[in-house]
Every structure is written in C-alpha cells, then in structure tokens.
Design a binder for these strands. Structure first.
Length: 226
DNA sequence: CAATGATCATCC
DNA sequence: GGATGATCATTG
C-alpha cells in the first residue's frame, strides 16, 4: 500500500503515474479484486483510488488527506468529458446546525480544496475497462464560492424552519439536497413543520452536474457545452 | 445509526 | 437524455 503523500506535489505526481491506466490495471497493481459491475460495489472506484493515492480517513468525517486539508473526489465522465452524475459532498445536518455559518460548514470546508480525478466511465464500460483521467487540484474561485454559499444558506434555512419536506433536488443552483440513505426506511432526527423534532429520511449535499462540468472546463480549457 | 465511497433505476 | 429519488457495501 502506497504511503501517505507528504504534500500536494507528491499527490499530483502519483496522479500523473496512474493517468491513462484502466481501473483493472490499477487494481492488479494493488492486488485488489475487480467487481463485474458496480451495482453492489458503488464505492469501489473511490476506494481503489484512495488506496492508490495513499488517502486515509476511512469512513470517518474527515478529509481524505487530513494534513493537507484535501478532499479526493472521483468524477465519472463520458467520452466528451461531461460528468455522468452529481457529486456527493457530505451528509446534511438536519438538527443542531441552526446558526452555523458558511465558513464553518462541512460543505465549505470539504470543498475548499478538492483533488478531482476524472474517470472515463461510460455506462456500458465494465469497471475494469474504465480509464483514469488526469487528476487536478481545484479551489473554488470567488464566484463559485458565492454560488455554493447562497445555495447552502437557503437550504440550511429551510431545514432550520422545518421545511425539509418541501426541499426537492432542483432547489439550489449548484448545490442540491437529496436523500442519502441505505433505503427509504432509514430515519434520522430532523425538525418538523411545527418546529418539534421528527424523524425523516437522511439527506446529503450534492454538486449538480453543471457545476462539476464547469470545473472540468475551467481546468482543461474545454468548451462547456455539448 | 451515521459516516464514508457513490451509482442505480425510474420518471419526466 | 437528464435529473430526482432510491439504493448498496462497509466501517465505527
């Protein structure tokens, strides 16, 4: 298992080494078995790349590279370089976060610096054949930060006011709130419409495709359409 | 249960 | 085709 990288340059160097490899090739190097499909191994890609890059953290609520305050995100893209999915950020606090300010929020902290690792992963490609792209480190610019902050503040206000049930995935501009649970029967504490505690489906913050697509376009100078 | 890693599958 | 809501595995 690769050692934890000491700095950002080491991480980027490692990214250069694995760019262009298929996930099957990388898995073979690391002696990790490859699932035939991801239906029951949805986290496999992310965990493989964590291993390859020496990320730590596991299932704890901390950065992938704690000392570097760096978050690792794999990003499945199609052959045009467009993200296939929205990107999960973190679970949403449904209680006890009233009064929390944006700079202290887990969304802001996690997104303050991200190592994006595009993976060419058309749906008809077997996991082993998916190809690792060129990873890059991103930090939100002022405009991106403002969009994230605005969406976050709106969503958190609705949560605090007990309007969680009204929030749909379409609510934010770049950030959305959607279910995040093992199934529709999972429950967690939340604030009801009358302000009293209720149980509800856990939610998570996700970045919309248009936002991650813009990040890729920014990094690679691609056209943002198509 | 809640956190991590996300993709699946259905509906529009 | 794309987005929304549902779901899967694993760990502490």
């Amino acid at each position: 298992m690769p050692a934890a990288p000491a700095n950002l340059d080491q991480i980027l160097a490692r990214c250069q080494q694995i760019a262009g490899l298929t996930l099957g090739q990388l898995a073979a190097e690391l002696q990790v078995p490859v699932p035939a499909d991801l239906r029951r191994d949805k986290g496999w890609v992310g965990q493989l790349l964590e291993l390859a890059l020496g990320a730590s953290g596991g299932s704890q609520a901390i950065h992938d590279f704690p000392h570097l305050e760096l978050e690792l995100k794999t990003l499945p893209i199609d052959r045009h370089g467009k993200p296939l999915e929205s990107t999960y950020v973190c679970v949403a606090p449904l209680t006890g976060a009233t009064g929390q300010q944006w700079p202290e929020s887990w969304v802001c902290r996690k997104l303050s610096r991200v190592l994006w690792l595009p993976i060419l992963a058309e749906r008809d490609m077997a996991p082993a054949d998916r190809i690792i792209g060129q990873g890059f480190i991103w930090q939100p610019d002022a405009a991106q930060q403002a969009l994230l902050r605005q969406d976050w503040e709106e969503l958190m206000e609705l949560i605090a006011l007990g309007r969680l049930a009204q929030i749909k995935g379409a609510h934010g501009k770049v950030l959305q709130l959607r279910p995040k649970a093992a199934d529709s029967k999972a429950l967690t504490a939340a604030i009801g419409a009358d302000g009293r505690p209720v149980l509800s489906l856990p939610r998570g913050f996700y970045l919309k495709v248009a936002f991650t697509r813009a990040i890729l376009a920014q990094a690679f100078g691609l056209e943002s359409e198509r």
